[in-house]
């Protein structure tokens, strides 16, 4: 009987350091969401040859603050067809899974802060990407229950679509990372980053990167895969009946997911906190390197939204099952052969 360790993650800080760093990373992630929101609206405006928000604060930078005040002062309301407690907890599920997934993004290695060794990540678990997929699978309940318990046909259709879309692309997303795991030989996220010393995985795993990015667009319900909330046909999809704070909760979760996915792509394919050309990254710079790289992908998400039209639902499904899944399987197989052959 051979024991199969997924990764050697035996290092952990004292409990109070773990709690403090979790709160700090959470606070940073929380602050990123309004920034992403206003950047998206500004950029979308520019893409469409208009200004975007420019009234509230300098350059419209305080727009999210105005939005949250408006959403907070709405009336608490639910339609008579809804199932009360499910209707209330569904947005909470959505947001808590997004926040939990944020803990997986490593913003740096283990650095020395005032004499205490601190890993600049939420968790560095031995199951790595599986943790992400686990919470991704729970996130599906947030959308599904929200749409189903609203008791509106638009919400219901939106949530059914969401269910089918999320599970279809989750398979390809998972398979795309198998190639990376084979190459790195570990499931620990910081282990994967350290294995990219010398060459970022975007080069040897380019197909995996494309598949992962495409599947991530579908997983976060971003255009061109936003069939879940296709405004033209479903008027808003699963959150048609939501308003005020609960709507804000869904909205927040969606943008936090964009941030998390950007972080995961940076970690897995773009060398996390590593700088190119073998330059050693000092500890204090590491989080900024990660955030800088993440910015590119967040802007890329917005750019794609402004550029590509929405797919039709049958196209979406056949693309996921007939193109991405065989491609991801092939990628995993070829990677396995190459890894064993070159070892």
């Amino acid at each position: 009987m051979i024991s199969l360790p997924f990764a050697d993650v035996t290092y952990y800080e004292p409990w109070w350091v773990q709690i403090i760093k979790a709160i700090v990373i959470f606070a940073v992630g929380l602050q990123l969401v309004p920034v992403v929101l206003v950047v998206e609206r500004k950029l979308l405006g520019r893409f469409q040859h208009r200004y975007g928000p420019n009234r509230v604060g300098p350059f419209g930078a305080l727009q999210p603050l105005a939005d949250i005040v408006k959403l907070a002062t709405k009336e608490q309301f639910r339609p008579r067809t809804s199932i009360g407690w499910l209707f209330a907890i569904a947005p909470v599920i959505s947001i808590l899974t997004a926040v939990a997934a944020l803990s997986l993004v490593p913003f740096g290695g283990v650095v020395d802060i005032f004499g205490t060794d601190v890993g600049l990540y939420g968790v560095d678990v031995s199951i790595g990407p599986l943790y992400l997929f686990a919470f991704g699978a729970v996130a599906f309940y947030g959308i599904m229950l929200g749409g189903w318990s609203s008791g509106s046909k638009y919400s219901f259709l939106g949530s059914m679509r969401a269910a089918a879309q999320l599970i279809s692309y989750e398979v390809s997303q998972g398979l795309a990372l198998v190639g990376v795991v084979m190459t790195a030989g570990t499931l620990s996220m910081s282990g994967i980053v350290e294995a990219q010393e010398g060459m970022w995985y975007v080069i040897p795993q380019f197909v995996g990167f494309i598949i992962f990015l495409t599947a991530s667009f579908a997983e976060t319900n971003r255009p061109p895969f936003d069939l879940v909330e296709a405004d033209a046909e479903l008027v808003g999809g699963y959150n048609t009946e939501y308003g005020g704070g609960r709507f804000a909760s869904y909205f927040f979760a969606e943008y936090l997911n964009v941030v998390v996915v950007s972080g995961i792509v940076v970690t897995v394919f773009f060398g996390g906190w590593l700088l190119p050309f073998g330059i050693d990254t000092p500890g204090w710079l590491q989080p900024f390197v990660v955030l800088f790289k993440m910015t590119f992908f967040i802007v890329f998400f917005i750019w794609i939204r402004a550029t590509l039209p929405r797919l039709r639902y049958d196209q979406l499904m056949s693309f996921g099952w007939k193109v991405l899944l065989p491609l991801a399987t092939l990628n995993a197989l070829v990677t396995a052969i190459v890894v064993v052959a070159t070892d």
Binding site: Q18, I23, A88, I89, V92, S103, S126, G244
Partner: peptide
């Protein structure tokens, strides 16, 4: 090593609960 994950889930639930309930307080 999973302790921060529990903190994250707790904070996420807290924020979600605040968002869900805030219309009852301010609305």
């Amino acid at each position: 090593t999973y302790l921060p994950a529990i903190v994250f889930v707790g904070l996420g639930t807290l924020v979600g609960a605040i968002f869900t309930m805030m219309n009852s307080w301010f609305g």
